[in-house]
Design a protein around this nucleic acid. Structure first.
Lengths: 363, 363
DNA sequence: GACGTAACGCAACAGCGTTGCTTTATTCTG
DNA sequence: CAGAATAAAGCAACGCTGTTGCGTTACGTC
């Protein structure tokens, strides 16, 4: 393994930055990139030469815009790399193959047995991964796995809840690495989701929140372009955020938790009130971290997206009336059902070709 | 001005990293630093040479620990640099001079007239800054100013509220730069406070929240070592976080805002309930961003710190019973009344000698 | 007093982006 | 239609970063 000098980090960061611009899809010129990266066009030539040698970028013709030599254009080569993304729930396993731009090349879904023990689960996961490994072209970078509930990202362990749970404490990443012999990343579903969203639109979602409503309630953040995982990789568990201090008791022991209130409202068919709960959380979150985009995703949201988005938009408008300079855009995820699976694949892409978060420090 | 090449940024980042380690106070060896930065000891020699030439580091003797040449130790030179920090409220202006380690060299406080118009305010600020500029030794880096209410950090403008306000929209930074002819930074009080806390203990507070309770309620975040300012530099305004969706109406139009509930409880002498409101916010915040330290500060907190900290600690313990791996330390700011003024000074230090957040990008 | 050891320094090196200049490909002009 | 003007791209030398290899220094041990 190479010694990874700080100079490698400079080169790597620039490579990543060029890819981030190119990922938008439109061909880019040397000048565009030079401006975006803050380096000279000559440096861009060298950076592009590196990326082209690795097959990740390619020429895309040239345009003539007035006198002088025509501008050469370059584009990303989506099919040069790919990653597998898996989305695991208690009843289903969805899998996708995503290319370098984060677009889905192929997807498949299977049902899994309820309360499957770990060895069986492992078998299911590896089988799915192996099938997907045959799809698409380009270097296969690895496998990303997203799942609900507390997950230790750095340790690759599913932490689980205190309720009886066959998966609790399973060292999923280590086991998958052993079985598949390729890099594996394990992360919380809502964080995987926001990685997927930001991968395909990095500059748009520099400061964004993704609210995920599936069985539970999750909210993950992208702050200044990097995903928040937290000190114990526990960030995003907003299900038990208190919205009514004297509300209905929750299984967690407190009262008025968002998740409980949300489910209760939805249970009695009061979508409007459920949307209000969501809106409250979003507004609070906007005040705390000041994101300018809120992306909504998850099956429960898709089912009622008009009401949910409406409620959130009007709550934001009302709540931020005093601060007219704060403008927050609320949008629905474009990924649909693939959201978390794609996001998990993008975690692998991000890990390999994302902008580095730290400039100094070991490893 | 030099072209600031990416290599400068590497050097700058390493310089900053060495200072961050040295700031802890204890002398450090070449080997310690090499390990902390992930570079070779030889590189540390070069980095230290740069810093020593600028007077920021100095030798600190040597220790003999067995056979071989004794280890040379190095220490930071606190008096080599200094910055002025100002804390402005509606009635007071507090000022400090802080050295390179963020320690207070001198402080002074004056009362200011109520609803002072901008020109007069400017006069007060510059007079205070000029007096403080004469205190202490070392290169004076600039002036930091922290104040409550919405502040545009990047623009250096006080945004103010919709209530009649003579300071609203004042371009404070530009005016102070013109008057003082030195760098000026303007920031929200709670963010200034957390900059101050993290400056003196950078590794301890990599993921931390600072809850500030003065007149209003603020909560600023340090995520993976960098301060969250947000898309519109509006992060930290948690005063209107909803804790009781059907609580007492707040001036903002919603019901059950934390600030209103907190003030109401405190107003009727119910410190316990006020503490509960604070505890609710802290727990919600921990779930969202997963910080492992919570620092409390501000005059209102100091007055009731035992009850407040107790309530927060037990709320965290109860709320995180299901997630025993999440451990959050609650601590009181060690800065006391100087908190925001020191923090404002540290904003200047951080700006000049802090770890850069991005490796690529213009400027 | 010779030897092993550990920290340190010097010098050559590789690789990054930058700088200055040349080359190339287009449009405009006489 | 030829020549000047223009703009993009390439080539080569350079400055700077940290790295590598080896020699030097200062300590303890035998």
């Amino acid at each position: 393994m190479r010694p990874s000098t700080p100079l490698d980090r400079v080169a790597g960061a620039h490579d990543a930055a060029v890819l981030a611009v190119a990922r938008r899809g439109e061909p880019v010129s040397r000048t565009d990139l030079a401006e975006a990266l803050g380096v000279t066009p000559q440096a861009i030539s060298k950076i592009l030469a590196r990326l082209m040698e690795r097959g990740m970028m390619a020429g895309a013709g040239s345009i003539i815009s007035g006198p002088g030599k025509p501008t050469t254009l370059y584009r990303i080569v989506p099919s040069s790399r790919r990653a597998i993304g898996l989305h695991l729930t208690r009843t289903r396993l969805r899998g996708v193959v995503a290319d370098l731009t984060g677009e889905v090349v192929s997807h498949r879904e299977i049902e899994i047995g309820h309360r499957q023990p770990v060895p069986e689960l492992l078998e299911t996961l590896t089988a799915q991964a192996r099938e997907l490994a045959d799809v698409g072209s380009g270097t296969l970078l690895g496998v990303g796995l997203g799942m609900p509930g507390p997950v230790d990202f750095s340790g690759g362990v599913y932490r689980g809840t205190s309720a009886p749970d066959p998966w609790r404490g399973a060292e999923i990443r280590r086991m998958l690495v052993d079985a598949l012999a390729m890099p594996v990343l394990l992360d919380h579903d809502s964080r995987a989701a926001i990685v997927g969203e930001t991968w395909s639109q990095p500059d748009l979602l520099r400061n964004a929140a993704l609210v995920l409503v599936e069985d539970g309630l999750g909210a993950s953040l992208s702050i200044d372009g990097s995903i928040v995982r937290g000190a114990h990789s526990h960030a995003g568990e907003v299900g038990h955020t208190v919205v009514r201090m004297d509300g209905a008791p929750c299984e967690c022991g407190r009262r008025g938790c968002a998740q409980a209130e949300f489910a209760a409202s939805l249970g009695r068919g009061d979508v409007e009130d459920a949307a209000q709960v969501l809106a409250t959380i979003v507004l609070d979150l906007v005040r705390l971290v000041d994101v300018d985009r809120v992306v909504l995703g998850g099956s429960t949201v898709y089912a009622h997206h008009e009401q949910m988005m409406g409620a959130i938009r009007s709550a934001l408008e009302a709540g931020l009336r005093e601060e007219p300079w704060v403008h927050v855009e609320v949008m629905l995820s474009t990924r649909g059902t693939d959201l978390i699976a794609v996001g998990s694949a993008c975690e692998v892409l991000e890990h390999e070709y994302g902008l580095p978060t730290a400039l100094v420090g070991p490893e």
